[in-house]
Structures are given as C-alpha cells and as structure tokens.
Nucleic acid binder design. Sequence first.
DNA 1: TGACAGTGGTTGGCAATCCGAACTAATTTG
DNA 2: CAAATTAGTTCGGATTGCCAACCACTGTCA
Lengths: 148, 148
Amino acid sequence: MTRQPVLGFTDALVRLAHLVQQVFVEVGKEHDLTPQQAQLLCLLVEGPVGMTDLTRSLHLEKSSLTGLVDRAARRGLVVRTRDARDRRACRIELSGDGRRVAVLAHEEVARRLEALAAELPEEHKELLVSAVAGMLSARGPQGGGSDR
Amino acid sequence: MTRQPVLGFTDALVRLAHLVQQVFVEVGKEHDLTPQQAQLLCLLVEGPVGMTDLTRSLHLEKSSLTGLVDRAARRGLVVRTRDARDRRACRIELSGDGRRVAVLAHEEVARRLEALAAELPEEHKELLVSAVAGMLSARGPQGGGSDR
DNA sequence: TGACAGTGGTTGGCAATCCGAACTAATTTG
DNA sequence: CAAATTAGTTCGGATTGCCAACCACTGTCA
C-alpha cells in the first residue's frame, strides 16, 4: 500500500506549469482579461517595456506580440509610446485604467500562488526558488524581466 | 555583492511554467506537433483515455478537446474507439504512427526536463516533487493522469 | 414500462493566439 | 554613402479555446 503519490519529477513540473497557467486564467477572468493579457499586464507593472524585451519575456514572435499589444491597446489597457532615442522602437506602457487592473491582477496572482504554497515550510520554498534559478541559468540567460 | 538573483517565489513559479511550456514547444516542433498535440500524445502513452478524463488532465472544455482530438486524428496520430460498455463514450488511443511519435516525444520531454535539473542534488529534486504534490493537493484533487 | 434527469461527446459560431514570410523605417557598420 | 542590422507592422492561415445548443445513451424512479 505505498499510497505515497508516485509523482515523477517530470510529471511534477508539468502539473505545476498547468497550475500556474490556471492561476492566470482565473485571475484574468475576474478582471475580464485573457490569460495572455494578464501576463502582459503583470510584466508592465514594473514600468514600460520595449517590444523586443517583451518577446523575450513572453517567448513570443514579434508578430504575435504586435497582435497581443494591439488588442490590449484597443481595450485601453496599454499605450504605445515612441522611443525618442531610437525612432524605430516603442515602449509599451500601462494606461491609467490599465494600471489599476494590472496592479490588482498582479497582486492576485502573487496571492494565489503564495496561497498554494502556504503549507510549505519557508525553507522549502526558498529551495524551490533556488532550484528554479538553477534551471533557468542552465537554459542560458535569456530575457525575462522580473514579474514581481 | 548579493549576486544571488533576487527571484521572488511567484516569479520563480511563473518562469518555471514558461520553461516547461517551452520544452513542449521545442520537442513538438522536432516531431511536427503543436505543443498541445505533444501534451496530448504524452498523456496517451500510458494507454487509451476517455474524453472526459482528458478534459480534466488538460484543463480544457469538452468542445476544445473535441477539436484537438479531431486534428490529431486527421493527422493519423490517434484513433477514436467506441467504448463497448458505455456507447456514448469513446476512448482516445494512439495509432501505430502516433505511438512511435508519442514515445519519442514523451522521452524527449522527460530527458530535457531532467537535463534542466541535472545540476540539482537528488534530494532537492525529491523535495521539489513533494512540494509540488503539496501544492496540487492544496488545489483539490482534480484529474490528471500520470504523464510519466 | 416509461418519462426524465444526468452524462459523454459533437457541432457551430466566434474571438483570440500564434507563426512565418514579406515589408517599412530607422540605425549601425564598413 | 551602400549594405547589413534592428525594431515593428502587416498579411494570410492554422490552431486554440470558449459558450450555447444539441444528440445519444445511461441510470433512476415511479
């Protein structure tokens, strides 16, 4: 009766990924955002970001991001600002409304993820973070501004 | 010189989720599969599964899954088998070709995820698994057959 | 037996996502 | 200055995903 859930390492990572994704889905729904919009807004909470940086953070092709930003802009969540130093580039910025939603969504995502891990001892969480840091660097240091 | 990347807990989870997703994207691409198809095939490696079970494992609505399975079937990867005991239900099964691809993709996904964690000491990995198990149960025991 | 609620899946319509290839415009390089 | 790069957009097309409505079968209960 080894009723310890035989959860493999691979399995665990895949499930965890789904869990995180679901959080964005749910939080998004509460604020009438698609999961992708929610993730975008969370990235912008820290401040304006250029398109190219965003493609790296979100792992999207340029053209996909153009569409995502277009729809977010149409909903009045973000604004395109032309970069003065490089007139090709633009920076994506939260609008007033966008910022309100973004802050709430961002907080809610953090709250829920923390809640999921509420039962974990602090040291385990730290270990998990450093494990992830290791895996990220094993990947090569790609972009990806802080979500937090 | 605190050159420990100041990676928050939330951040870590989000990044990790992206990492896992990317693995499915890359492995999928190598076998001419969309990420969703890759995940579907990985679930089917263990054996045939009913639609309803799949919706729980993949966190999809019934209708979304119908489409996913349709396209996979059109590509000759899977087959719908009518369930004898319940003539409403059907079981999704790998075809001969599908099985070949599925086994390869499944192994490759596992290999890559393990590779990412190659530097982690075994005990840390186990701890990470149990941490995830804890988070999953905090969520309520939803479906999700073993991917492994 | 025979309504009837519940379950397993499909269909249809629609918005959003995502990609690759081709393109414009500004910047950098030689 | 010409050529190569870089930043973004546009366009066409396949996929993803949801909801509402639906069909077919199962199980229950009177």
